[in-house]
Design a protein around this nucleic acid. Structure first.
Lengths: 210, 210
DNA sequence: TGTACATCAGTGAACGCGCGTTCACTGATGTAC
DNA sequence: TGTACATCAGTGAACGCGCGTTCACTGATGTAC
């Protein structure tokens, strides 16, 4: 990876560096346990300097979550685009998308940015209604996106068992969030990858009629 | 529910009441955001009184996690026992166990105690090696328990696709943890229940050969 | 080209509040003789 | 049955530290005329 692209480098704008450093720390320790002081120190500015960029510690949380939503969306766009370049059949597309997702989690073992959302979910109090709404929207976007895809699949490949496409979409999301928890809790990053690949197999079985 | 069995009642030992009250608060707000002060106030003792029962705030976390592990184990024992009373076939047993689990999550909408473990996973710093090890052990117990069951199923009902029994076991766990995150994040407790029932359908499809 | 002003990206010191923790002490209950 | 001592389940007040936040100020860069 080129040094200039590292968001922690001194050359990138301070605000970006704060976000990058904060994200790393929050993933490891949680939001509360990450002090403004240590974030500022890591970026080599003063504590007051931090408040020039974010009027609140809450503002940092919001920025992090919103950034995460955007990045996740872009990742899904990329993966969707690549899958539809390669194949026409919606089931085959889905299977390859899941493979691409799994590969992403191999690349970034341990530093799953997705947990930002999950960990936010477990710290209600901190975050105002705006943040909660953004979080909720992110989950709904994910659901609608994949629901549509599963609907397409069902048309071409009637499932062996009648399932709700929205539930299937949620399952992918839940399995990734839950896989991250297991991976951390068990100290084995591979758990997440294996869960995505297992889900892929189950999707295949469900829609590959006799 | 009988009033005498309510762990928040003034009749039950103070230590138990602290645990119950703390668990409720931590699930809603997270560990850091729940102060010793408010726990003590809810139990109607002084802050110092709290430290008579738990030498540390960390000791509270440990007790909560260990209790959770025990309770989860008991729940699984119950469910397993009921399933093997009703049916002989391991696949049918598994399917009924999953239905019983789903029913549990209907009963307790919103107050999923399981999150205690998940939220602990996202707050490394707080908890010493002992707590982390306990958490890890809990996941491994879950995996081995269900791995054995999936192995049995595979013998009687060869799966349509070769899957790892350990991964299947992890999937149940991941889906429940992830389902809780989705349920909270989307503000819809039903999401969790639907995920467990969907997983049930997928298990059925996977092992119900032609 | 020089001067005046504005904006940007911070600094350093201070404030105050809440939180976890400690400690000397206390009243009620149990036990030994 | 009475007395002495021990243990249990706390209380109340105090301490000190870290944290988020504020505020007056500053040097560097950009812009207008």
């Amino acid at each position: 990876m080129p040094a200039t692209a590292d968001p922690r480098s001194a050359r990138t704008p301070t605000r970006e560096r704060i976000l990058a450093v904060a994200q790393d720390a929050i993933i490891v320790k949680g939001f509360d346990a990450t002090s403004v002081d240590e974030i500022a120190a890591a970026v080599e500015i003063s504590r007051a300097g931090f408040f020039y960029h974010f009027h609140d510690k809450n503002a940092l949380a919001r920025a992090l979550i919103e950034r995460q939503i955007v990045e996740e969306g872009e990742m899904l766009n990329e993966i969707t685009a690549r899958a539809s370049e390669l194949l026409d059949d919606p089931l085959q597309q889905m299977l390859i998308m899941m493979r691409l997702m799994a590969e992403r989690y191999v690349e970034v073992p341990g530093g799953y940015a997705g947990c930002i959302l999950a960990s936010a979910t477990y710290q209600d109090r901190l975050f105002d209604a705006e943040v909660k709404a953004a979080n909720r929207r992110a989950h709904l976007v994910w659901r609608e996106r994949f629901r549509a895809h599963f609907d397409c699949i069902a048309v071409a490949h009637p499932p062996r068992e009648a399932v709700d496409a929205g539930d299937m979409a949620d399952m992918l999301n839940a399995l990734i969030e839950g896989g991250m928890i297991l991976a951390r809790g068990m100290g084995d990053p591979q758990v997440l990858v294996r869960q995505v690949l297992l889900a892929q197999q189950l999707v295949k079985v469900l829609y590959s009629g006799p």
